[in-house]
């Protein structure tokens, strides 16, 4: 039996901050002493692996290889705690239990997987094997924007779904549909996180208004900040600048996730 939780991070639109949020949440959980895995679903474009200081060339086999029986899950997990590199923030993860699992379940490959019969059950099995092999407390999945089939699979298997949105009507509209889907798929824990909120707005009001609209909890409202956009070294921002407002709010979200029974 697995006790590890699958946490999916999703957003209706792209560029909302999923990859940054996922990497930082995973890092915070690892710092708190948890055993954590991160599934990177997008090794082709600069995403989560970059924040952990890796590039595509360093990563060998992917979850797809595992799903096709070409690799064991042990071969796929990349131990971040043993490869923190030079960056100041990441260095704090030295010796922590954090693994990155590259995968490329997207575009053409998803249809291939479905054709080959790698369906929900197999994907779920793969994730559960990952959790049990590495004895994980949390497995974070950085999903793709929108509600394509691959994302629906990921939502359906989640114990916790964190939806990130920007505080504007377009995102609220899209998020409303995702919330309805998550409820239809019986996701047991649903949370929202607002990112890129302009500091001139009343964050408390944003939180209460959105909670009221969706009857779901907003675990944090994170500011739009050039400091993060400017994170030239691609370090883990909340580890590098723990006293920054963005980092403080992010830790609040991490706490909300860790508090789920």
């Amino acid at each position: 039996m697995n006790k590890g939780k699958i946490v999916s991070i999703h957003s209706f639109r792209g560029g909302t901050g999923k990859s940054n949020t996922t990497a930082n949440l995973a890092a915070q959980a690892a710092l708190a002493g948890k055993r954590v895995g991160v599934v990177d679903t997008d090794i082709q474009s600069p995403g989560i692996h970059v924040l952990f200081g890796l590039d595509e060339t360093k990563m060998g086999k992917t979850i797809n290889d595992f799903l096709h029986g070409k690799a064991t899950i042990r071969e796929i997990g990349f131990p971040i705690g043993e490869n923190t590199g030079g960056a100041e923030g990441r260095a704090k993860l030295a010796g922590k239990n954090l693994w990155l699992f590259p995968s490329s379940i997207r575009g053409r490959e998803i249809s291939q997987i479905i054709k080959e019969g790698v369906d929900f059950n197999r994907l779920n099995e793969g994730l559960q094997t990952t959790i049990s092999e590495f004895d994980l407390d949390y497995l974070f999945i950085d999903t793709h924007p929108g509600l394509n089939e691959e994302t629906l699979l990921s939502i359906a298997t989640s114990d916790i779904l964190l939806i990130i949105l920007r505080p504007d009507n377009q995102d609220l509209q899209g998020t409303s549909v995702t919330i309805d889907i998550a409820r239809s798929l019986d996701v047991p824990n649903l949370m929202l996180m607002v990112n890129k909120a302009l500091p001139k707005y009343d964050f408390a009001q944003i939180k209460t208004d959105i909670e009221e609209k969706f009857h779901a909890s907003v675990a944090g409202v994170l500011p739009l900040t050039f400091d993060l956009a400017d994170n030239a070294s691609n370090d883990l921002f909340s580890l590098r600048y723990p006293d920054h407002e963005w980092s403080k709010a992010l830790r609040g979200v991490a706490e909300a996730i860790l508090a789920v029974k």
Binding site: P167, N169, V177, I181, S184, I210, K213
Partner: peptide, 23 residues
């Protein structure tokens, strides 16, 4: 005083329609 208030609107019929399309 400087903090501005946002107003949020959700088009409920569009929400329902999109949900049905997917499901």
């Amino acid at each position: 005083q400087q903090l501005e208030q946002l107003t949020f609107e959700i088009d409920q019929s569009r929400r329902k329609q999109e949900f049905e399309e997917i499901t």
